[in-house]
Design a binder for these strands. Structure first.
Length: 574
RNA sequence: GGGCGAGUGGCCUAGACUGGAUAUGGCAGCAGCCUCCUAAGCUGCAGGUCCGGGGUUCGAAUCCCCGCUCGCCCGCCA
């Protein structure tokens, strides 16, 4: 368990304030807020007490201020505008924060190791084409959340449920088998398997609509598949596997590697989906209509046209959500906490799934993180209609742009080194730009924003890190100094205050699943570092040098940690 | 028609769950800063009916109600 430098201060305020309140006859949990740092470090609003004590908030604040003397940890306690304000002892904060970071290094901010096994399902895009930037929001949210949870001490397994069942993948497989390559235009001229195969899928879709013979063949194949024909199932799986290879390659390029892949067809082949059907049929909520079975979920808060959840077709075959239930029952055995990262279109399906799991008397339930779709300025993306920006193209563009920037300023580096840095920057810019926005906000993809390398962006943070490395590289060996008297500049104090907030930020991102706060925080650290850098010399600063080098090293560890939570590389030069 | 989510300067965005002091940053714009640790940077200026209207409250971007706009869903698809 790492140190949270702010915790002793919070504890102190809770103690002395609680005591002061009790002496005034108020028994309550002490809740204080964190105001603008220019005002105070911590603040207690006295307004809610006005009614209880029948006094003006100002008077209450004055009275509290009179009761509380400054302490070793709190250098100033004062009343202002109906608040009781606290200023922490800055010297104490400097020593504690720098001391904690330098001794804990990459573990600073990490949570205590936990035994709760987390199974985080993300990505799970249909393998009918290359992953596009709309769907890329899923792996980026999922991977970032996984990293934040791991930082908090959770053992996390990430998993992709591969949809190798159903009309889409059957159609893809039919297309690969029957469409002549002369009729196919691939997604791009690259040799990547998913870019090659998607053309067959798109052409097959066209043929399906225009040619009744094709419709017949596909229906036939689908029927064989639904009846469990192992040959057909195997063929479809083989095609999706090829497509998935391409998708995996794209994911790897943006730094997303999943731990496990589970194939949906497995739950048909091993009979577990069938078992779900049989169990559901026994429930009092189950009804049958022309051979098709459904659950009436009106007592589960689902009403109207949505209340009937069909779990079999009239021919007895299973439906997607039924197989998803089998998958979840399987996950229950392997984990203590399940998190699913899903597109907002999945909400109803998940509501059905949650209700159905309750009907089966299952106590566990997955927790879901939903995200809104990314659209293009001209509208929604669609692989089928070829209205898309593929992730591969975005990555290429980002790396090219980054390469231009690196070449402009670093004539000294080898071509290979410049390429490596460009990859780290390009990939980072994409990840940062998508993760910085709250998942539930709709996002319109714009090239100029996705390729932003300034201000609130990954390169801004990476650059701050590289600056730290550069100074430390030039400094060579030095002796750490945590002497607050040597770190008195306002920009030094501000930077230290920000560094002290890292453990709390990590907790928020992981425990509250609010990963978009990490880019906000990382930008804040980088910004504080850049201001410090601009105004305070480090090298050749005489008696201050060791203390400032210590601060630079501390900033480097925190920047590195933040970048790591975000899945961004921390280049030492750029 | 019903359900869910979002609406914050020209554009993007934090804050909302847990109401509290002058609403956070960035992009674009304007004006400055490289004899000094990488200017992907720093400083300053300008820019706001927090979608609209009611309500609750000492106090509302935040909570409640009504409406508007946008997205998603309402298949024996996945």
């Amino acid at each position: 368990m790492s140190t949270d430098p702010y915790e002793p201060f919070r504890q102190e305020v809770r103690n002395i304030l609680g005591e002061a309140l009790r002496s005034m006859g108020v028994e309550q949990k002490v809740e204080f807020e964190t105001p603008d740092p220019n005002i105070a470090d911590m603040a207690f609003p006295c307004f809610p007490l006005a009614k209880v004590l029948r006094k003006a908030p100002k008077a209450i604040a004055d009275e509290l201020a009179a009761k509380i003397a400054p302490s070793a940890l709190l250098e100033r306690v004062w009343a202002e505008n109906g608040y009781l304000n606290f200023k922490v002892n800055g010297d104490h904060l400097v020593k504690d924060t720098l001391g904690a970071i330098i001794s804990e290094k990459r573990d600073y901010g990490a949570g205590e190791p936990k035994s709760c096994r987390v199974l985080l399902e993300h990505t799970s895009v249909n393998p009918t084409g290359p992953i596009h930037v709309g769907r890329a929001r899923n792996p980026l949210i999922g991977d970032t959340l996984a990293r934040c949870l791991r930082k908090n001490g959770y053992p996390v397994t990430t998993e992709y449920l591969v949809n190798d069942v159903g009309k889409q993948v059957v159609l893809l497989t039919w297309g690969v088998e029957h469409v002549p390559s002369s009729e196919v235009k691939p997604a791009s001229d690259r040799q990547k398997v998913d870019h090659q195969l998607v053309g067959y899928y798109q052409r097959a879709n066209e043929l399906l609509e225009s040619d009744p013979e094709v419709e017949k063949q596909v229906a036939e194949m689908l029927r064989a598949f639904e009846n469990g024909d192992p040959l057909v199932i195997e063929k479809v799986r083989a095609t999706t596997e090829r497509m998935l290879d391409g998708i995996k390659e794209s994911l790897t390029r943006i730094g997303v590697v999943l731990d496990q892949y589970t194939w949906e067809s497995q739950f048909i082949l091993n009979g577990e989906a069938r078992q779900v059907v049989e169990r559901l049929k026994l429930s009092p909520y189950a009804h049958e209509e022309e051979g098709a079975w459904y659950l009436d979920l009106s007592t589960f808060g689902i009403h109207g046209r949505e209340q009937n959840f069909f779990f079999t077709r009239s021919d007895g075959t299973t439906l997607y959500t039924t197989r998803d239930m089998a998958y979840h029952l399987d996950k229950f055995k392997r984990s203590d906490l399940m998190i699913n990262v899903l597109g907002e279109d999945q909400k109803l399906g998940q509501a059905h799934l949650l209700a159905a799991l309750k009907i089966l008397c299952e106590e566990k339930a997955p927790e879901c993180v939903y995200y809104s779709f990314v659209s293009l300025p001209e509208g929604r993306m669609s692989t089928r209609k070829n209205v898309v920006v593929y992730l591969d193209d975005l990555i290429d563009e980002a790396e090219d742009r980054a390469f231009e920037e690196v070449r402009k300023r670093r004539v000294d580096l080898s071509e290979e080194k410049m390429r490596q840095i460009s990859r780290e920057i390009g990939r980072g810019a994409i990840r940062f730009n998508i993760v910085r926005v709250q998942a539930e906000k709709q996002l319109t993809f714009r090239w100029e924003e996705a390729l932003n390398f300034e201000g609130n962006s990954a390169p801004f943070v990476q650059y701050a890190h590289a600056r730290c490395c550069s100074i430390l590289r030039k400094a060579g060996e030095f002796t750490h100094s945590f002497d607050p008297r040597l770190l008195n500049e306002p920009y030094e104090r501000r930077l230290i205050r920000v560094l002290a907030q890292y453990p709390a930020t990590v907790r928020d991102c992981g425990e509250r699943r609010r990963i978009h706060l990490m880019p906000v925080y990382a930008h804040e650290v980088a910004s504080a570092l850049n201001q410090f850098y601009a105004y305070v010399p480090v090298l050749r600063s005489g008696e201050h040098q060791n203390a400032r080098l210590t601060l630079v090293e501390a900033a480097m560890w925190v920047l590195r940690g933040s970048l790591d939570c975000l899945g961004l590389a921390a280049p030492e030069e750029m």
